[in-house]
Design a protein around this nucleic acid. Structure first.
Length: 825
RNA sequence: GCGAGAGUGGCGGAACUGGUAGACGCACUGGAUUUAGGAUCCAGCGCACCGAGUGCAUGGGGGUUCAACUCCCCCCUCUCGCACCA
């Protein structure tokens, strides 16, 4: 035997075996309870990085653990394969995006296989495959039919150099992230998913997500951003027009002293026409629009505004209210018009101070009295109404309701709920995405591509030198005939946002080769929802919200029976090095392949699990990897040292062990308990590994030469067998091999997880801590079942303790059974 | 600004419903063995004092308690998310 295990041959041996035997292929089995564990699928960027290693190691431990627990575990993997980087790489290297993508997939698949991950590779999907996006197009059409998709014109960020729409994240200081060209707003048509139809349900059901991190739930709640309030019409003076405002504070409506409109508000034109302010206001609007375009995301511009020359009437008190245009009012939210109450809204307060507008308190706090002249900030809390007509004297909460009721009764307003959530714009002017399956006919208008003509295939993707220009430049692609009238027509040339693919892939995994429907409802009903989903917190909003939306859409289309796709969510921390996230630009990247080459997959996995609990950031430490490697070699040597125990057939009475043997027996069962608990409660594999290390340390200590003869082979054998079983989900090749060389012929995947013998795990003797005035002064050994009176007696007669008492009489003695005694003097 | 989370040795991190702070690992120090080792084994390792020992220690300051990393109040720092949402 050598003193280090040969990870190379062991790992390739087991990987081959798993592959040949299809060890992790699963199918529906109504007699067994299923468990669906899923890691967010990767974008095939070229090589896997440490974040992937961490993500998939965590998932694989859970998959293997649950398998040992007897579950029918589905653990699939695939590729989020559409996206802009493929097009960029293609441009740069003169190859086709499809070729680049599929090459990357092949390489990364081999990297994942080298990690020994227990996937059912027969379920592998790549979203750029027409067999996948065909069904995405199908779902799109079903949604279109149901009115969940619509086309509208909006303003987008356009880069004139790259000739494409940019996502908001791709606009840096007003310029394109790639070519640095100034981004311009452009009005164009696009397709939208009506996610806002589900806003309320998506919000309400967040309460059901008890298996999600609070943080993610909160982020989604804020993102949906529900506000309840009053929509109320203010009649424009000397005009037929009305300004409709939205407020969440109807209780402050008697404190309105002016009105603010967004610069884009459609009414402005009429308000200023022919007035002396006309020119000035136009100039202001133009300037503000420019400013908005340029505004960096990280600072708020100062508040500016300008009087339009018009007034409107507060329907509650009949007062004339001057109408302003202000740069801080958003057209996209509410109604684009805000009633300004400087006394109770900080922005309005600042604006009023700047432009010398009146401040009128109408809600009084409990303790103090607000006086307009001395206010230094708005009072934004609820309180009791004053100077508010018939509502004076009411509490804010009641007043809100009464004021809304009043508006409803009089017909100039109503209760309104608004959401921050916008409909999801999915049109992209890029090549490498799923084509949107509609046809434009001059005569018949927008026509869905007939189902039997799906998929609308991306042209050129099947040959390496095929065309990959944006579809609107590919005449052969967009020239078609109308499915209705047969006349000349034009295909939609936009492709879908890549987030669409990832919004339902987890469901497709349940019947990945189905060519009759997007999903097999029976398979979906068996496997879904995903029991444990694992991925980076950067997807907390978009991907996870879209998936929740799609799940409901697929439910309403009759494919799914569930509301929520992911029962439990684990958001893993980043892998960092030298205090920063690993990135090429920082030059602190560790390539997982180098590690696997040098230390093996098991060591790499073990370290990524041991260095930090999953939800925290993991600081990469090269020496820490050595430590993990050392540990495995230590286990390896220890097993070899005790190989004879596995052949020993001496009878052993586990109920009558001597001190040394019962110590090991006890520790073994305590370790099972600790490891099981660490995994079950919060997936803190770091403490699970620590526990096994302690067990190994004990076996080492006890098997040092002078005491070895005392150890019972059966006790050592049990300890080592359990070590191997407990470590198996984390370091599967190593443990598979150890299991085999210790004479077992059933694969560990089919061995049940070890059971704790609670009797054996119980300590016989415990350490009782003696405190004097709360400070530890002494420790005593006592039998575990000692009662409080006896402990107290022992403590008071303890020599060290009496020294500290210096003859003083105890005022009080607190005894915590099995733990400590505190003597107060 | 708002929201969420986190501050524990030289480092990563332990500590159950308040009850021995620092498990486990890394680094470091001393020793053994070795031709050699980035191998292995033994011992030490929060800080202060020469020390058995004692005192001080979980971001800072108060408080509750016999007892606080843990509970309460105030403050500081860091990370992440949202960012004029009416």
């Amino acid at each position: 035997m050598t003193d280090r295990y040969d990870f190379k041959s062991i790992e390739s041996k087991w990987q081959q075996r798993w592959e040949q035997e299809k060890s992790y292929k699963v199918s529906e089995d109504p007699d067994r309870e299923k468990y669906y564990v899923l890691e967010m699928f990767p974008y095939p960027s070229g090589r896997i990085h440490m974040g992937h290693v961490r993500n998939y190691s965590i998932g694989d431990v859970i998959a293997r653990y649950k398998r040992m627990r007897g579950y029918n575990v589905i653990h699939p993997m695939g590729w989020d394969a559409f996206g802009l980087p493929a097009e960029n790489a293609a441009m740069k290297r003169g190859i086709h995006p499809a070729a680049w993508t599929y090459d990357n997939i092949d390489y990364m698949r081999s990297q994942l296989k080298a990690m020994g991950l227990s996937y059912d590779w027969d379920r592998e999907i790549a979203t750029c495959n027409p067999k996948y996006y065909r069904w995405e197009q199908f779902i799109f059409l079903q949604m279109l039919e149901k009115g969940l998709v619509y086309r509208k014109e909006t303003t987008v960020n356009w880069c004139s150099d790259c000739k494409t729409v940019l996502a908001r994240e791709q606009v840096i200081d007003g310029a394109c992230w790639r070519c640095d060209q100034q981004v311009v707003p452009k009005t164009m048509h696009g397709w939208f998913f009506k996610i806002t139809d589900y806003a309320e349900e998506l919000l309400q059901d967040l309460d059901k997500l008890t298996g999600w991190p609070e943080k993610v739930v909160t982020m989604q709640r804020n993102w949906i951003g529900k506000s309840q309030g009053l929509a109320c019409d203010f009649q424009v003076e000397d005009s037929k027009e009305k300004v409709t405002i939205f407020t969440t504070r109807p209780d402050t409506i008697y404190g309105v002293t002016f009105m603010s409109l967004a610069v884009e508000h459609p009414l402005i034109e009429q308000l200023i026409k022919g007035r002396k302010q006309e020119k000035e206001v136009r100039a202001f609007i133009e300037k503000t629009l420019l400013e908005k375009q340029r505004a960096a995301a990280d600072h708020e511009p100062d508040k500016h505004g300008i009087f339009t020359g018009s007034y409107c009437i507060n329907p509650y008190n009949g007062e004339r209210v001057p109408i302003y245009v202000a740069n801080f009012v958003l057209m996209e939210y509410g109604t684009g018009a805000v009633m300004a109450v400087p006394a109770h809204d900080q922005r309005d307060f600042e604006f009023a101070v700047k432009y010398n507008l009146p401040i009128r308190p109408v809600v009084q706090p409990q303790e103090t009295e607000l006086v307009a002249e001395t206010m230094e900030a708005a009072f934004e809390q609820p309180g009791v109404l004053i100077d508010s007509g018939r509502f004076t004297g009411m509490e804010s909460a009641e007043a809100k309701q009464r004021i809304i009721d009043h508006a409803t009764a009089k017909g100039f307003g109503k209760a309104l709920i608004t959401y921050r959530l916008r409909d999801w714009g999915i049109s992209r002017q890029r090549y490498w995405g799923a084509p949107i399956p509609v046809i434009y006919c001059e005569k018949c208008g927008i026509q869905p591509v007939p189902e039997e003509q799906l998929p609308v295939v991306l042209p050129g993707a099947d040959s390496p030198d095929g065309a990959h220009a944006p579809l609107h430049q590919q005449v052969d692609f967009y020239t078609t005939t109308c499915p209705k009238c047969g006349g000349a027509a034009r295909r939609e040339t936009d492709t879908m946002d890549t987030f669409v693919e990832s919004s339902w892939y987890f469901a497709r995994y349940t019947s990945p080769r189905n060519d009759q429907a997007p999903l097999d409802p029976r398979a979906a009903a068996y496997w879904l929802p995903v029991d444990q989903y694992i991925g980076g917190v950067e997807h907390a909003i978009l991907h996870l919200l879209y998936s929740r939306f799609f799940t409901r859409v697929l439910r309403d289309l009759g494919y799914l029976e569930i509301d929520e796709p992911f029962t439990n969510l684990l958001t893993q921390g980043m892998v960092i090095k030298d205090g920063a996230k690993m990135s090429k630009s920082k030059g602190n990247v560790v390539d997982p392949s180098d590690l696997i080459e040098r230390y093996g997959a098991d060591t790499t996995r073990l370290f990524s699990l041991f260095a930090a609990p999953p939800e925290r950031d993991l600081e990469w430490n090269a020496q820490g990897v050595d430590g993990s490697s050392r540990f495995l070699n230590r286990v390896y040597r220890l097993i070899h040292q005790h190989l004879d125990c596995f052949n020993d057939s001496t009878n052993c009475d586990f109920t009558a062990l001597d001190t040394v043997n019962s110590q090991l027996y006890r520790k073994t069962h305590q370790t099972i308990a600790r490891v099981t608990d660490s995994i079950e409660s919060n997936f803190h594999f770091n403490t699970a590994i620590s526990a096994v290390m302690e067990l190994i340390n004990l076996i080492s200590t006890l098997s040092a030469d002078d005491t070895k003869s005392n150890l019972e082979p059966a006790v050592v054998k049990e300890a080592l067998e359990i070590t191997i079983q407990l470590l198996y989900p984390m370091v599967p090749h190593f443990c598979g091999e150890m299991w085999e060389i210790t004479g077992h012929d059933t694969a560990l995947d089919h061995r049940p997880w070890p059971e704790v013998n609670t009797e054996a795990a119980r300590e016989e003797e415990i350490t009782i801590v003696i405190q004097v005035n709360g400070k530890v002064r002494s420790r005593l050994q006592a039998p575990a079942d000692i009662d409080s009176r006896q402990i107290e007696e022992m403590a008071l007669s303890d020599e060290r303790t009496t020294q500290f008492l210096q003859g003083k009489k105890p005022k009080k003695v607190i005894v915590v059974k099995g733990k400590l005694v505190n003597i107060v003097v």
